[in-house]
Nucleic acid binder design. Structure first.
Length: 908
RNA sequence: GCAGGGGUAGCGAAGCGGUCAAACGCGUAAGGCUUAGGACCUUAUGGCUCAGGCCUUCGAGGGUUCAAAUCCCUCCUCCUGCACCA
């Protein structure tokens, strides 16, 4: 018995690859090139299996294409742009115990932790080195000569500047204000991962409607200004502290919380003082659109932290207002009569009442009722004739018209508020800040979008479903804020206060890979826009540029465009579309990206593993324990965008199957030369496996690929041996082919087995991908093997049913005449499967054809052959005897029960 | 809110108009092997039958077809991603 020892073959073959420089491709115009890449990694910790999942998917593709004789380039770089590395460095400086623990778990020494605390770049450099080591252990076939670091490599910084100036020249850079979620204490923007609470919340634009109340303004914030004609009263809350503030020459009554938020949105408060809210309760305010007088009433549901602390009540549109109206109707004479309905929805006479009745008037009930009502109104609602100039409009039309109307009456303003509560990790409440003079990339540009969408519709996108998502994301794209005030990165060349943010400095860097090994040797001072214009766009330089420019231009021309970019799904609707749009904006069409591969996340939740190792299991440890080949099987757990689970039981299966192959290779010479039907079967299946597996690899359906090659293949092989297959050449052909089919996934062990089978060339080096044409397709042999297998099932069933233990089983093959009738039906069924039509096509009809056609869903479609059927049973006598412990007799049979593919079985 | 994708055995999943739906894997049960455990092998795992048969079932309800898990409509329900953030 052979045993697979993890780590047995990796070093040996890695050395061979390194010596032959297999992963360092040079320009070769005789070969088709294939440029594949994965986004730059952000090294703020150690590589884990989750990362490795994405990179292995790329590596499998790279190796697959190399076997198909493509000249494959796969580079990899890093980026330091942005905040987290700095953030971690600061946490280490502050001696944050969690941060220190993370470092210790990553096996970082005390001295290094201190180094990282004083210099974040050192941390990036350290972890990019460990990433690289782990990638090499796992067999990533990367050309490391082209490695570089975004926001660190000076020549790259020049490239970013060039790219930005190009965008600016094309009018694709604009400037404006932009709302951001902000921590007032730390005075920085609050990204999703900086939040203790409120992940996914975003700034929302609220309308402010100004209701006059004596000489004061009650500013009501709402998302639904179109309901202003249905307002019955104003809600305030006497438990809240209110302030009178001077804004735009008016006196606003707002919560003191709102007063604090307002300056962040570029509103100046001239003066402010405490305000006794009880002084206006039960007085009246004026609705600006119809001058109706409405009462100001107290309600405890008004939230001090949301908006202005002043709310308008529209009972016939908002379930919460409706419930409160019922409670307080006694308190003001004008509220006695039922409020007027302002929005009609067909088929819902009492929309609000019914929604409240159905869901209840407690908090969750009201929330659900509101959701339902808003959805109905938005999709089917119409503003009815009680709405003045808004009458007859849909909700969306009404909203725009209402805003215009209010603006005309000088009763409109707007404000950004959070969509939900956000709390910073530091503990303070987040708020919305309007950042002034932010720089944008103008992705809203219609022409740019059109060109990009048109191109995306022609790209190769795996899995297919992702295409719609990409197209829709581009379609809905707005301008992208492209800079920030802090963090590591490249300063904007024309406004050095701003640093380019990480998604915007990384849209076309794949072009830089093609030249990075050359440009890195240049003095950064010699790198300028003219050089890039020449290399990437072919524009003749006006001044002298480096003599290496032509070499670089050649590299770029040969390797570009990107053939396949592989990444996880969270980059799908941002990075990947920026990647496409910027290429479309800056490069000629023949340099636009060709393919995308998108995957989900790897979830390692196997109990055994997470208990002993945790989910942060180090790559080097897993590889030591299971072997690089086996760890790589993580990439074969999914076909697409779904998240995948990995479990140790899969690992064992793979290991055992390789040991089985090793066993057979060892005893290969004990096999002989006899050829049987099962030999034809096995080789025929091989051809199909090649076709299926190739198609699966091409579409990154690796789960299917490992199935159609490895699992299915070994099942066939086992059956072949059991059923009496014993031909040395067949076995050798078969095993050699399987090894090739799974080589992209399991490179080391397959390279080893391939050499043990006597192969002279490396799988990785030459045109080694098998060709389906080399294996003879033999449908009849395949069909008759199915007959053998189903007959075994039938015999087992019969034995069970009858309770007999037969000492002799007789297999009766149907007469030749039935075979020809049967095959005639098979032939006709290729044209139609409609039973009536089929019947009319047959030359003769008898009890046999009636029986076949009885069930239209059981019409045979596989051609059979009497000689082969006889032979396969003759050749399988030994096999059948072993299974049933009984003498097997094969003979012709005229019995009614004997049909082609269904021999008569007699137990005796 | 915007967008995308699902709902098939105890679970994960395949099937995407026609070869009796459930391949393949996991789990479970029985047996074999073993000092025992693990691993491995065999068998079973929707229901009824008991000479290779029949019936039920693919989120729910309608429709198209000789034929629907598969195509169309309506509804329910779950998951995923979403820009100053890597």
């Amino acid at each position: 018995m052979s045993t697979y020892k993890p780590g047995e073959f990796e070093d040996k073959w890695n050395k061979v690859y390194a010596e032959k420089k297999v992963f360092q491709p040079e320009i070769n115009t005789k070969k088709k090139k294939f440029f594949i890449n994965v986004p730059v990694a952000y090294p703020d910790g150690r590589l884990h299996l989750g990362h490795l999942y994405t990179w292995t998917r790329a590596d499998i593709y790279a190796r697959f294409m190399r076997m198909k004789d493509y000249n494959v380039l796969w580079p990899q770089g890093w980026h330091f742009t942005g905040g987290p590395i700095i953030g971690m460095s600061i946490r280490l400086k502050d001696k944050d115990p969690t941060a220190i623990k993370i470092m210790e778990q990553s096996k970082v020494s005390k001295e290094n932790i201190e180094k990282f605390a004083s210099d974040p770049v050192q941390m990036g450099l350290y972890f990019s080195k460990t990433f690289k080591e782990d990638f090499e252990l796992a067999g990533m076939s990367i050309d490391w000569r082209r490695e570089f670091i975004l926001s660190y490599t000076p020549q790259y910084t020049k490239f970013v500047e060039w790219q930005l100036r190009k965008l600016k020249d094309k009018g694709l850079i604009t400037q404006g204000n932009h709302p951001v979620i902000w921590c007032p204490r730390e005075d920085t923007s609050l990204g999703d991962h900086d939040r203790a609470e409120g992940e996914g919340e975003s700034p929302m634009l609220f309308s402010i409607i100004k209701f006059k109340c004596g000489g004061l303004i009650l500013p009501v914030a709402t998302l639904r200004p179109e309901t202003v004609f249905g307002v019955t009263n104003i809600w305030i809350n006497d438990k809240i502290k209110y302030r009178k503030i001077e804004v735009d020459g008016e006196s606003w009554i707002v919560s003191s919380e709102f007063e604090k938020k307002l300056p962040y949105q570029l509103k100046e408060i001239k003066s402010a003082s405490d305000f006794d809210i009880s002084s206006i309760i039960k007085t009246t305010a004026v609705n600006p659109v119809n001058n109706e007088e409405i009462p100001v009433l107290n309600a405890d549901f008004v939230d001090k932290d949301l908006n202005t602390g002043v709310v308008m009540s529209v009972p016939m549109h908002s379930p919460a207002d409706y419930v409160y109206w019922e409670k307080v109707r006694e308190s003001a004479p004008s509220l006695y009569k039922k409020p007027k309905k302002i929005i009609d929805v067909d088929g819902y006479e009492n929309l609000i009442e019914d929604a409240v009745k159905k869901n209840g008037s407690d908090r969750p009930g009201l929330k659900e009722a509101t959701r339902f009502v808003y959805k109905k109104e938005a999709s089917e609602g119409k503003l009815n004739d009680k709405n003045g100039p808004l009458s007859g409009l849909t909700i969306n039309e009404g909203r725009e018209r209402a805003i215009e109307l209010l603006k005309g009456l000088s009763a409109y303003d707007s404000i950004y508020e959070l969509s939900g509560r956000v709390v910073c990790r530091c503990g303070s409440e987040g708020l919305v800040k309007m950042v002034q003079n932010q720089w944008f990339i103008k992705y809203s540009d219609k022409k740019l979008k059109e060109k990009a969408i048109d191109h995306v519709s022609r790209m190769n996108i795996y899995p297919q479903e992702a295409r719609a998502q990409v197209i829709n994301s581009i379609y809905n794209l707005e301008d992208k804020a492209m800079a920030r005030r802090g963090g590591l990165g490249t300063p904007l060349p024309w406004d050095k206060e701003w640093i380019v943010e990480p998604l915007s400095d990384s849209t076309i860097y794949m072009a830089f890979y093609t030249i990075s090994h050359i440009i890195k040797t240049l003095d950064p001072g010699d790198v300028n826009d003219e050089l890039f214009d020449y290399v990437f766009l072919g524009e003749k330089p006006k001044h002298q540029i480096t003599p290496k420019a032509d070499e670089m231009k050649k590299e770029f021309e040969y390797w570009y465009p990107v053939n396949l970019r592989i990444t996880a799904k969270e980059l799908l609707t941002n990075h990947l579309i920026f990647f496409i749009l910027n290429h479309v904006a800056l490069f000629p069409e023949d340099k636009w990206p060709i393919g995308l591969g998108i995957n989900g996340w790897l979830v390692i939740n196997d109990i055994k593993m997470s208990k002993s190792k945790g989910n942060t299991m180090l790559i080097s440890e897993s590889i030591k324990e299971f072997g690089a080949d086996v760890v790589r099987s993580i990439a074969a757990t999914s076909n697409g965008i779904d998240d995948v689970k990995w479990s140790t039981s899969d690992i064992n299966t793979i290991k055992q199957k390789f040991e089985f192959l090793m066993d057979i290779i060892e005893i290969l010479n004990d096999f002989g030369d006899e050829r049987r039907v099962v030999d034809r079967f096995l080789v025929s299946k091989l051809g199909r496996m090649v076709v299926d597996t190739e198609s699966n690899y091409s579409q990154l359906k690796y789960r299917n690929a490992v199935f159609t090659s490895f699992f299915e293949g070994l099942d066939y092989l086992k059956f072949y041996l059991e059923a009496g297959g014993k031909n040395r050449e067949t076995l050798k052909t078969f095993i050699s082919c399987i090894i090739k089919l799974v080589h992209p996934i399991f490179p080391f062990i397959t390279e080893e087995l391939n050499s043990r089978l006597g192969a002279k060339t490396l799988l990785e080096e030459s045109e080694s991908w098998p060709r389906a044409e080399d294996y003879g397709l033999d449908e009849i042999a395949e069909n008759e093997v199915s007959v053998l297998r189903s007959t075994v099932d039938d015999i087992s069933k019969l034995i069970k049913i009858t309770g007999k233990t037969p000492s002799r089983i007789t297999i009766g093959i149907a007469p030749a005449e039935k075979f020809s009738t049967y095959n005639e039906i098979v032939e006709s069924a290729k044209k139609t499967k409609n039973p009536k039509e089929l019947r009319s096509m047959l030359k003769k009809q008898d009890a046999f054809t009636d029986r076949i056609l009885k069930n239209p869903n059981r019409i045979p479609i596989n051609e059979l052959d009497i000689e082969i059927e006889r032979r396969i049973f003759e050749e399988s006598k030994e096999y059948l005897t072993r299974i049933f412990n009984s003498e097997i007799k094969v003979q012709d049979s005229g019995d009614e029960k004997a049909s082609p593919g269904r021999p008569k079985i007699e137990l005796a």
